[in-house]
Computed example of a mutant assay.
Amino acid sequence: MIRVLVVEDSATMRHHLRESLAADPELQVVGEAIDGGQAVELVGRLRPDVVTMDMMLPTMSGLAATEHIMAEFPTPILVVSSADRQELFSTYNALAAGAVDVLEKPRGDDSDAGWERRLCSAVRMVSRIRVITHPRARLNGRSRAEATPPAPVPAAPAGSALGVVAVGASTGGPGALTQLLRALPAGFRTPVLCVQHIAASEPFAVAFSDWLAGQTGRNVSYATDGMPLRRAAGRVLLAPPDRHMLVADGLIRLNQGPPRHSCRPSVDVLFESVAAENGSSAAGCLLTGMGRDGAEGLLRMRSRGAVTFAQDEASCVVYGMPREAALLGAATYVLPPARIAARLAELAPREGVLP
């Protein structure tokens, strides 16, 4: 039995959540909270397997409650939120603070068909994730990341100047991407192409670029089909919702080819194209996520001379995709996101000119 704590201030929505979860014989609602403070208290007392978390709560917000829970009682959190812009940004902040996934609340239209089934499926999926005390959580006045001295950065290998960075991430990715991009130097000009799996509706996914730009101070946008890679200097380009992103003949291309590992966009599609197109002038980074998308593509990149990175287990929300890459021998280095950024900075052209 998977024990669930429901956090929601609306009595109507709380009833809907309770009834939807009760219909699944594997799920049991063990408590309900109507504000963030009560949520933190109940997590400590009841120790549920999963928390469904609303963002807009009285007294203490869902974001603040998420941060407290992940610092004090690490528990898988599924954010159940609306597509309101303010709430979207709070949702991504919660994902960066350690929440595992997001499900949009019912809209009251045809898109609601099967919502109860999607909720129960998401709760079951989230319950399988082993979460950790999140590095962003404040403990005794400083974060765990600050308390742990960084590992030394290996010496940069000789090779081609860095022409493109390909990044893949899934569950836990918003936080890891933020850490990586923030740690890159301000003058970093090498294009960064990123596939982030977001298991949510298009309004959630579209807002991600604006949120990531605000978090990192970088030029972040969704890729457009046919853009020359050279024009992407100094930019972070994301694969749009439901589109594969790849590089071919010096151009960034988008398509709706078959999903890979049930994913579209797929990290493997991006990595394999970069391996073929850019070879040793590329770097590949596979960050936190469930499943194995990107592991074989990262191996392909390494076989073509690219420098490849997998996020280390200690800093991952979910050590799935990076673990698969490490088992395949696909990663040249296994490092936390900020240390990956330090290596990328060493590899980038000194004058910011693409090779």
Rank of each mutant, 00 (worst) to 15 (best):
V236W: 02
A205E: 14
H15W: 15
A200T: 00
V50H: 06
R243Q: 11
S20I: 01
A176M: 02
G187F: 14
L46N: 05
I34V: 14
S262R: 14
V4D: 00
V247R: 09
M55I: 00
R218Y: 07
A65F: 02
R128V: 00
M227Y: 02
L17V: 09
E351C: 13
A176H: 06
G114P: 05
V153N: 12
S81L: 01
A200M: 05
V102H: 01
R118C: 07
L246C: 11
V7G: 03
I340E: 02
Q86H: 11
G352W: 07
M125Y: 08
L46R: 07
G108D: 01
A23F: 14
A158W: 07
T148W: 15
K105N: 03
N219Q: 10
M13P: 04
G214Q: 11
Q86F: 12
G352S: 07
P355E: 03
A233Y: 02
A295F: 03
V6A: 05
V40P: 01
A83P: 06
L229E: 02
R117F: 13
P336V: 03
V167Y: 10
D101A: 04
S221C: 09
S273N: 07
A22Y: 03
S160D: 15
Q256C: 09
A137M: 14
R323K: 14
A145P: 07
R128L: 06
V126T: 05
